[in-house]
Amino acid sequence: MFKGSIVAIVTPFKNGKFDEKAYGDLIQWHIKEGTSAIVPCGTTGESATLEYDEHYRVIQVAIEAANKKVPIIAGTGANATEETIKMTKEAQKLGADASLLVCPYYNKPTQEGLYRHYKAVAEAVDIPIVLYNVPGRTALNMLPQTVARLAEIKNIVAIKEATGDMKQVSEVIRLCGDKIAVISGDDFTTFPLMLLGGSGVISVTANVMPKDMAQMCALTAAGKIDEARAIHYKLDILNAAMFIETNPIPVKTALAMMGMIAEEFRLPLCEMSKPNRDKLKDILSSYKLI
C-alpha cells in the first residue's frame, strides 16, 4: 500500500460544492494510468477548507470510486489530538485503508508532544497510520529520533517526508530500517529518496501525469536506474511548475486547462496571476497535456 506513485488528489469544486462526478472520473483515470493509491483530503485536496461533513464525503466517494482497486489513504490530521482521533475513527468506519496524519500545525508541540499525539491516535484506531512531516506548512520538524520512536508502534507504518532534506531522510531510514516505509512528500525528491531506500511518493505532479510518475517509481524500484533517471529529468520542469504558486492552485489550474475539472478554489486560495497562468499554460503545452 505504501509504495509507488500515490496521488495526493485534488478536490474538485463546482459552484461552491464538491464535484463528485469529476472526482470519481479522476479516480478512474488514476486507476487506469497505474497510480498505486489515492490520498483524499490532503494538502492538495484543500482539506483545510472542507467542513466535517464534506471531509467525510470526499473520503467516502474516493472509497466508493476506487472500489478496492487501489487503497485509499485518508487525510485526517489536525492540530488537536482529539479532533484527529475523531476524524481518523470516522475514516476507519467509512472503510479507508489507512490514514495520513500531518504534524499538528500552528501550536508547535515539542518532540515529546508529537510522540504523544501520534501514539494517542494510533491507540485509538486499528488502521495503519502514515506520519506526515512538512515543516514548510506546519512550522515544525519531526526529527528522525522521534520517527524512530513512533516506528515501534505497531500500526504506525510509514512517513511522508516533505522536508526536502536528503540527510534527514537518510537518517530516518538508518534509524528505522524496515519498521517504516519512507515516502517522498516532494515530487522533485522522489528519485533520490527512492535511491536512498524510500518506497515511493505521495505526489502532486501525479495529478496531471500519473503514468509517468508511476513508471518512474516502478523503474527505480526495479533497479532500472538510467530509465528512471530519464523520467525524473523529463518531469523536472513540470514538478517545479506545480509550485509556481501555492499548491494546489497550479495543479487545479492545470487540470482545468486539461478539461478534467472546473477551475474553482475556496478562499483564501484564489486563481493564478496572469503571468504565472501563461507560464503554466506554456509548460503544459510543451508536455502536450493541452
Rank of each mutant, 00 (worst) to 15 (best):
I9P: 00
N15F: 03
G16D: 10
D19P: 00
A22Q: 06
G24F: 11
I31N: 00
A37G: 06
I38S: 00
P40M: 06
S47E: 02
E51D: 08
Y52V: 14
D53N: 15
T84W: 11
I85G: 01
K89H: 13
A96S: 13
D97M: 05
L101F: 12
C103D: 13
P104N: 12
K108Q: 15
Q111I: 04
L114V: 10
Y118C: 01
A122T: 01
V134F: 09
P135S: 07
T138Q: 04
Q145A: 14
I153C: 09
N155P: 13
A162G: 12
G164H: 10
M166Q: 14
Q168C: 07
S170R: 06
S170A: 12
S170H: 12
E171Y: 03
V172A: 08
V182Q: 07
V182T: 09
I183K: 05
F191H: 11
G200Y: 00
G200V: 00
S203A: 13
V204Y: 02
T205H: 09
A206V: 01
M209A: 08
P210L: 05
M213F: 00
A214L: 01
D226R: 08
E227L: 02
A228I: 00
R229D: 04
L235C: 12
D236K: 14
N239C: 14
A240G: 10
T246E: 10
N247D: 08
V251K: 10
K252D: 02
A256G: 10
K274M: 13
K274S: 03
K279E: 09
